[in-house]
């Protein structure tokens, strides 16, 4: 099996590739260039990495200004600061003026680990998804993260790309092509649908194996694009299985689970369970420990799925 890699590892290096290809990319970061990996861009192209110091509000609006002069501007920091602390800058400047700014902080979710709850952002999908003009991508491994960054860079206007710190198993190969608004069916099944994003995609694939050993056929879908959401793929699968689990490293409020519930509630009411953070903050621990602690590991997903279909 291929070496595990964090989604953040795709960030700086993909920006370098984009510049090499002639895209007018600039990254603005806030004293976390090593953690976010934008440092790599600065090493290749010193002028294209702008470090604003520990000043996240300024980071977002400097990126806004850069975008107004034709740059494709990416912003960094940790997801908790890079979305939460600067919500108003993203709302009133980036989204309200529909600027070409890509919000791509790293360290989203509880897989951040030992730093604890203050640093584990579990509300970001919710915050970003509610903003008009914003599109939201949640890659599940290094390869899909590279493509998410490319999709965001290629399409004009605001994007949120959710990147993480933890090293994740590789789900995709170089030939898997992603598109805005398209989910990926990774495992076809007939008894239950598991729709996941980010680190939970791999957990869900593992859950499907556990379920298979119990004779339950689970369909696993990588949502990838939370906004616009691939309603067609979701409805089609729900029609087939009649039971849907969502799994995300994020609050059950406002994230993927909510988005799927909105689509199904209006089109095809389906019994559902949302796996995610149950209205709680994270805590210190290793990523593996935390996934178990908060019930978002493969085993918990498999249990919930079996229970949902009465097995």
């Amino acid at each position: 099996m291929a070496e595990k890699k964090a989604t953040r590892a795709a960030y700086g290096e993909t920006l370098v590739e984009l510049v090499n290809e002639g895209v007018d990319v600039v990254a603005v970061d806030a004293d976390l260039t090593g953690s976010t990996t934008t440092k790599v861009l600065g090493q290749e192209y010193p002028n294209r990495l702008i470090n604003v110091g520990i000043a996240e509000q300024n980071m977002i609006d400097v990126a806004a200004g850069l975008s107004l002069t034709g740059k494709v501007a990416f912003t960094g920091s940790f997801a908790v600061f890079g979305t939460g602390r600067v919500y108003d800058q993203i709302r009133n400047t980036v989204c309200y003026s529909k600027l070409n700014v890509k919000i791509a902080p790293t360290h989203a979710g509880i897989s951040v680990g030992p730093d604890g709850g203050s640093h584990q952002m579990v509300e970001d999908i919710s915050l970003m998804r509610t903003l008009p003009n914003m599109r939201v991508l949640v890659p599940s491994d290094y390869m899909s993260a590279k493509q998410a960054i490319r999709i965001a860079a290629a399409a004009d206007g605001p994007f949120y790309v959710r990147l993480g710190r933890a090293k994740l198993p590789q789900v995709y190969g170089p030939d898997d092509i992603f598109e805005l608004g398209c989910a990926k069916v990774l495992n076809e099944g007939s008894d239950v649908t598991i729709i996941a994003c980010g680190a939970e995609v791999n957990e869900s694939l593992e859950a499907a194996k556990l379920l298979a050993s119990q004779g339950i056929s689970a369909e696993v879908i990588d949502a990838f694009c939370i906004k616009p959401l691939d309603a067609e793929t979701i409805i089609k699968s729900a029609e087939k299985t009649g039971a849907v689990i969502t799994a995300e490293e994020h609050s059950i409020y406002g994230g993927l689970g909510s988005a799927v519930a909105e689509v199904l509630g209006e089109n095809l009411p389906t019994k559902m369970v949302r796996i995610g953070m149950q209205d709680t903050f994270g805590t210190s621990g290793s990523a593996d420990e935390l996934f178990k602690e908060f019930g978002i590991d493969a085993e918990s997903i498999a249990k919930a799925a079996a229970k949902l279909i009465g097995k």
Binding site: N58, V62, L68
Partner: peptide, 24 residues
């Protein structure tokens, strides 16, 4: 040039614009 109304942001935006223009 850019929507405003939430106070405190224009100087950052302008600084980003000015820097972008300097780069170009």
């Amino acid at each position: 040039e850019v929507s405003t109304g939430s106070l405190g942001q224009g100087l950052s935006i302008s600084a980003g614009m000015a820097l972008g223009l300097k780069m170009s």
